[in-house]
Design a protein around this nucleic acid. Sequence first.
RNA 1: GGGCGGUUGGUUUAAUGGUAAAACGCUGCAUUCACACUGCAGAGAGCGCAGGUUCGAUUCCUGCACCGCCCACCA
Length: 694
Amino acid sequence: MLAMDKFDQPYNPKETEDKIYQFWEKSGYFNPDKLPKRHKKPFCVMMAPPNITGHIHVGHALENALNDLITRRKRMQGYKALFLPGKDHAGIAGQYVVDRELRKQGSSRFELGREKFLEKMWQWMKEYGDSIDNELKKIGISCDWSRKRFTMDEDYQEAVRAAFDYYQKKGWIYKGKRMINWCSSCQTSISDLEVEYLEEKGKLWFIKYPLSNSPEFITVATTRPETMLGDAAVAVNPKDERYKNLIGKKAILPIQNREIPIVADDLVDKEFGTGAVKVTPAHDAVDFEIGQKHNLPSYEIIDKRGKMTRESKVCEGLTVKECREKVVSALREQNFLLKEEDYSHNVGVCERSKTVIEPMVSDQWFLSMKDLAAQAIRAARKNQIKFIPASRKQIFINWFKQVKDWNISRQLWWGHKVPVEGEGEVLDTWFSSALWPLATLGWPKKTRDLTTFFPTDIILSAREIFFLWIGRMVFSAMELTGKVPFKVIYTHATVLDSKGRKMSKSLGNTVDPLTLIDKYGADAVRFGLVWQVTGHQDVHWSEDPLIAGKKFCNKLWNASRFVLQQIGIPNSQFPISNKISNFKKLTKADKIILRELRKTIKEVDKNIEKFQFGQALQALYDFFWHEFCDVYLEASKAQLTDPKRKEQTRRILLHVLANSLKLLHPFTPFITEEIYSHLPIKDKTMLIVENWPK
RNA sequence: GGGCGGUUGGUUUAAUGGUAAAACGCUGCAUUCACACUGCAGAGAGCGCAGGUUCGAUUCCUGCACCGCCCACCA
């Protein structure tokens, strides 16, 4: 397919990669339906759909290099392999980025209106969606683009409605006033998993609440004095001897001068603060629970913009922060402030906007988790799903044991509309992602793809979306189809920066895969990433393995050149055989290289089966560089001058090279396909569909 | 607070119940015969700390420290 003289040039990844990718796409082999006849047994992996919020990062590159590695090997082994790509509309995150763009231009989504804003969203989706696809193609992944899905596709919306209906008929979906996490900047509720906790150096204020008809008082400790304006009670632990005689009595709430009861509840920790806690049912999750149990009134003193309401009386219109200052100074003046201590504690912020989360009571849709969680736990316990690493199994079970009902509604414009419900009320983006392995294959219709590829074989994901996504896919599929959605859950390493910190835009420590590909070539980047996957839960980012990858590609290229020169391309067509018995009168060097090749095949297979991708690659590296290049290639130089050995040495060179290329193909697909295309082998196919060595 | 992972040459990481391997970097030599993105030779760690098991531990156990990640309603 290439003019041979090209092969005399140094390896040029840029030129080769684009050309080879087109070559693959043209072949149709990414599509399992277009694979040769020998590919029968279905095999399926799904891409974790990237958010349409920006560009791919190094985590995507790693994850999909592994997805592709697995797929390519299975394809070569004769499976009818499908690697299904797609993207996620990313509800809150998606809306947030577009809104931010608008604000940069001095506009906003409110100014645009819902209709126009959604148009913008789709425009964004088109632009960024395509760009993400192209970025993924640069990595060389062999996914079937004809089956590409987006979580807001027409038929995907249908799947979402079908799932919602199903749960509703079961009676598991309900609407109610519950405590939720409210982001005043995104103007929506968010789930517990979307709240991020940051340590904050704050204060612990000790406030005296006078007892009714008594000169005495009870002291409460709080980090949020402003919420006292909405207090409905003081709570103590029933076993706390200090306060036993106060239970049932009344206290006077300072500033508001309202009488509130003193109640007893197990949720109160005797050891913390004074052992007495102020109860604000409308603005704290625990307090809400206590309020329910004791039938306390709920005073909503903070509104959805993060401002104090009329209910707060003295602070109406102030921000939470302003109100806090006002309340503290008022308490100080009126002698209700006993003391204040420095206190560092965790403050929940919106993972998207970093705005402090206001817990508040709101009318929201929920999905009851009781039966669904039980399903997921059962699947894990019965080992219907294999967890890699194995420790994930217990983590999975433990999370589902304590999971609360899922707040599935969001007050956004971008997303799946909640059936019945009006504008501006959409489903949590994860409600649709949870259906990914089903909806992408056509569910709820009984499509051919669904029967062929579902349940899928393996799912790869980052730790951070283990519950958010993986957990929810498990119970969704089990409930809706009665089957686990995948046989294996592989939680891959997180790529941290060289100092071991999480990569983030704000820290400025992110790595751009495209820059790396430009610098080293895609094969070298894949090599470098996979090299570092050795079974740990983290990878400390280093570019060194990528440099090694680049050098390795160069070595591969030059060794291949040598072999081809010896064989005398392009005239002869060697029928090469995998059977070593076809080689006779072997020299010591011949025997060693053939033995080492066999050992390496075993080693690579064993390690890939164990998900030890880095070790598999290292075995290949050592074999090719040291056994083949340093030893055998050198030995072959003498053998090639001996007329009695010449022919067989040529065949062995070609045999070992061809098999090395096959083994390396899932790791470094571009260069191996390119070199393979030059090998003078009878009846060969493209490397992507060649037989995996045995 | 709970869980998980890590702590090995300058750096990033392997392996292993009997005194440690690779990549990158470093030093010296070689070389226009596939490859300087090369070859050969070499320096460099006794494997976080403290106990224990063992004939023997970097490897197993216990505790501690530090780093990181995840989860959690401590006001």
